[in-house]
Nucleic acid binder design. Structure first.
Lengths: 137, 137
DNA sequence: TATAGACCTTCCACCAACTGGAAGGTCAAG
DNA sequence: CTTGACCTTCCAGTTGGTGGAAGGTCTATA
């Protein structure tokens, strides 16, 4: 299978597949013409990578997961541990974004959004940290 | 004021302040020794940038916000529009992360996490997209 | 057989928003 | 006069790719 077929079947861009080879996640054979030649195993690995990436695992997580995936005597605890750490990162990110959202949606609500220059959003950004928590509503 | 003082007073790393100068967000004067020399206005701008960045605005957003901040005849609608677009990006990111969280926490719950190799997390990652939505619980 | 167009190859540069570190100049205190 | 805390510039690396140029290959059709 050429890279274009693999790209179509996994949904990954060909560029990304080449990149994954570059960083050692897959190692397709080469045909006489120099073209990459992928087998079913390679295809599955790439689909696995695509799915793991879509769940937000980092490339290094993926490397670990792939290794466990191929190790038939793995302990599921090792997989679970990677997943749990990733889950914690997701939690942290969601909290951070939720806090930003809270603050910003409040400010947006307060802003008239008309032709006048007065703007609570800019006021907040310009205020020093100390005076920021004074609730005005 | 030298860069170190500004760093202490704004909470921004000196490296970041130099970077902001590089990309044209601030333009401190220079002393005879070549050191950057910051005035109060520069300090305020940097604090403004730090606050905007902490709310997740991109550097280009910040550039726009800073311009509006300095333009005393601005329309608050322009500020609100930048903020609203950013809010939409935050919303999208939260949704994406929440979906990842949902899927992953479900899988983590299902995984025994012991010494045995059988692992629902790896099973999910390895499954093709078609067979993934079959609920097992 | 020529040629068009769809493949494939490598390599280099770029994105955001910094961060780390090396090599070297400056300044104040003891 | 030296020590140590500053400051300077410049280069490279981070994450996870993406875009594009220059060029080789394959297949179908005229």
């Amino acid at each position: 299978m050429n890279i274009g077929d693999v790209a179509r079947r996994t949904g990954l861009p060909a560029k990304t597949i080449r990149y994954y080879e570059d960083i050692g996640l897959v190692a397709p054979r080469r045909g006489a013409n120099g073209y990459r030649s992928f087998g079913e195993a390679e295809l599955h690995k790439l689909a696995f990578l695509g799915r793991a990436r879509s769940l937000g695992f980092t490339i290094e997580d993926c490397r670990g997961l792939l290794e466990l995936y191929e190790d038939k005597s793995r302990a599921s605890a090792d997989v679970k541990s990677i997943a749990r750490e990733h889950l914690a990162r997701i939690d942290a990110k969601i909290s951070e974004l939720t806090e930003m959202h809270r603050t910003l949606s409040h400010l947006v609500q307060e802003c008239a959004g008309d032709g006048r220059p007065d703007c609570p959003i800019l006021n907040d950004l310009a205020a020093d940290a100390g005076s920021r928590d004074e609730r005005t509503d």
